[in-house]
Design a protein around this nucleic acid. Sequence first.
RNA 1: GCGCCCGUAGCUCAGCGGAUAGAGCAGGGGACUUCUAAUCCCAAGGCCGCAGGUUCGAAUCCUGCCGGGCGCACCA
Length: 572
Amino acid sequence: MDCEMLLTDRLAPAFGAVAGGPVDPVVRRSQHADFQSDAALALARRLGRPPREIAAAVRDRADLADLCSSVQVSGPGFLNLTLSDAALAEMVGGLAGDPRLGVPAVARPETVVVDYSAPNVAKEMHVGHLRSTVIGDAVARLLEWSGHRVVRANHLGDWGTPFGMLIEHLVDLGEAEAADDLSMGDLDAFYAAARAKFDADAGFRDRARLRVVALQGGDPDTRRLWRLLVDLSEHYFLTVYDLLDVTLTDRDFRGESSYNDLLPEVVADLDRLGLLRDSAGAACVFPPGSVGRDGEPLPLIVRKSDGGYGYPATDLAAIRQRTGELGATRLVYVVGLPQRRHFEMVFAAAGQAGWLTAPARAEHVGFGSILGADGRMLRSRAGGTVKLQALLDEAVARATELTRTRNPALGAAEAAEVGRAVGIGAIKYADLANDRHRDHVLDWERMLSLDGNTAPYLQYAYSRIRSIFRKAGVTVRPDAPVPLAEPAERALALELLGFAPVVAEVERGLEFHQLAGYLFRLATTFNAFYERCPVLRAEQPVRDGRLLLADLTARVLRQGLELLGIRTPERM
RNA sequence: GCGCCCGUAGCUCAGCGGAUAGAGCAGGGGACUUCUAAUCCCAAGGCCGCAGGUUCGAAUCCUGCCGGGCGCACCA
């Protein structure tokens, strides 16, 4: 149980007795004390008593003697809570012996599907894929660490009419030649060439159309060529994931095509349930609550008028399979905000069909666009989309250069490793540190300046701590007494207790900027401690105690950054 | 037209019913014979888009405007 919950538990009965019913004590961190409870204010009207009087009554009843050195009524009716040094030391000491740093594993593990990244076969990943990949990976890491069974689903765009022209282009080039081109990772050029031929050459166009039919019909040779395209693309995606430090593997690809066989059943089920209606030749579900431009109910087109299936069909099939066969109870879709309505409709339709019923639920974890420094959608100098690989390479190059100048003592290999951790970390952190609902301005100068609230700031704090231990050749004594005499020590101890509540909060809302904000605060608090409180030169037992605080800080930073998918180099 | 997201310091952002609205960056002033100065400390910087309303209390909730972005039937 974390500190805030403990205080809440102690205050709740007192509030209950004073109010004559259950009351949430509303405990939070305070500028005026360690914690504060705001509940008395809200209670004043209901009870017809002055809030300060209520707060005083609660203070007199609450069983806080073993936790707090001071409980004071303050201002209009706040209860200011100051932890006793003994209680604070004990709680921090408890963290030291806990590999999970105070964060409990979930009591009821669920099967959670996290749907994220989803690049398109034969297209390069661009910045548009960055947020889904980075945020989704953080979701998967966090829920897994919390104790859930996480299924990563990389909903690859591996199906559709463009594959006719892509396969024909592959045939034209020759398989060996095409494989060479594609293994270089220049998928966009391949796609553009196919597209150009398709636009210019009527004969090619016809072949492409026939090829689509052959692909859908399961023609073995066509399927083999298609598979080749998919394999080559997957190989490329995996190299990007590796560079990005993303946990997606080859086992997580769940291409759209893998749902093909289920689609007729999905349509048949919907029909049997009476949910399907024909509209202009298309088979549609009309989930309640969504209206279009004309004010009429908006259809979810499950089967197009030409008999083909749209992606709503695939999404419905996926939900059916995930809640059914996989037994998932939480479906997380990490997809851009523009698709919000689409998911509303799909979730509503799946609910009507009985494929998404309690306790199973789905949530769209949406995010805004990535903008350039000019505040507009990010474009390359040439005006095209910015390739993800190029972005990452530049971040790594800049960070490596910076590392070399900052710390010439590092060898070339280590500088390269640190540069990678810092460059990639900077990009991921810049994304995760902002409220994901907002558009995210990606400014090279700021992001890679590596100052302020950035990954390198946190990484640097970590490496400083590791440096202390390396220099002294010591290890922590987990039972060392926690020193609290210095304000900087006390502030750090208190901040360390904040990890569990913030993880719990992020697990609920998947708002990772809250975790980033916490880690930044922790690093800031540590840096202030580092300035004022010498560790190795301190007298015992303070020295061991400061080592303990430093080590705990390092562990929380490492664990927190790991949840965000960011590395922590031992040296910088 | 309808719906969604967003308007907070010069810039990038926290805060989303409670005490004097907080950080970072940029700009100003300080601190390295002392565990890495990728650091720290100090000062400065705000009609919280506008107008109403609810409330003991509103940046936060409600309504209406204004501004920016996105979406609204067979592309995913």
